[in-house]
Amino acid sequence: MGNLLAVSTKRLTKAFDGKEIIHGCNMTVEKGTVYGFVGKNGAGKTTVFKMLLGLLRPTMGEATVLGMDSVRDRSEILRHTGSLIETPIFYEHLSAADNLKIHLAYMGIENTDLENVLTLVGLANIGTQPVSTFSLGMRQRLGIARALVHKPELLILDEPINGLDPVGIIEMRELFHTLVRQENYTILLSSHILSEVEQIADRIGVIVDGTVIQEISPAEIKEKHPAGIEDYFIKVTNGGKANE
């Protein structure tokens, strides 16, 4: 079972200044699936993502990513993972292609078809204009391109459709589906757009006050909550069921 999991956390806990922001968080993401992570603002989604990527050290518990420990094997995890955390930061004076080239150099990868990746995210023929002139949506697309360009096994995307227009959201949904179905990627993403998560994700994890209280498939939500995912979300986040 272990090698079928892209991500698993056991009693993951993170405290800042003595206050537990994440506590006893258990979650599992199967390989080759899209896992949607939802929760209110401040519930701890980004903190969990940061711990998976080794940007934060767990206070207690453990996180395993692609079979590796998030603290001990940080570099190896980063090599096989693409991430977009918070608002993506770029080298503003450089072009999109140059930003990707630098990223690849740090990743130790050469000879990647940058144009193809930029086309995939809807930035074809972007030319040499510096990133400082990009709109919010273009920056988000470039952030996703950077997460993809080194061909990782796992994508950890924190609100990847933030700032995208409706067409962009549909394009990204199709891209994520293609990556998972055809190229066997695993995607762990968070979003506040519940209807989108419902369409993209194979499994949804709901985090409330630093704990994943439920992991459920969109089909189960439909079955148990005919009123829809928003109704389910409000009930769960206010009720706080135990982790199932």
Binding site: K50, S75, L78, S83, I85, E86, I89, Y106, M107, G108
Partner: peptide, 13 residues
């Protein structure tokens, strides 16, 4: 700030 996230996302010591 956020620039550090980018810097620490590279698989280099």
């Amino acid at each position: 700030g956020k620039k550090a996230i980018l810097l620490f996302s590279y698989p280099i010591e």
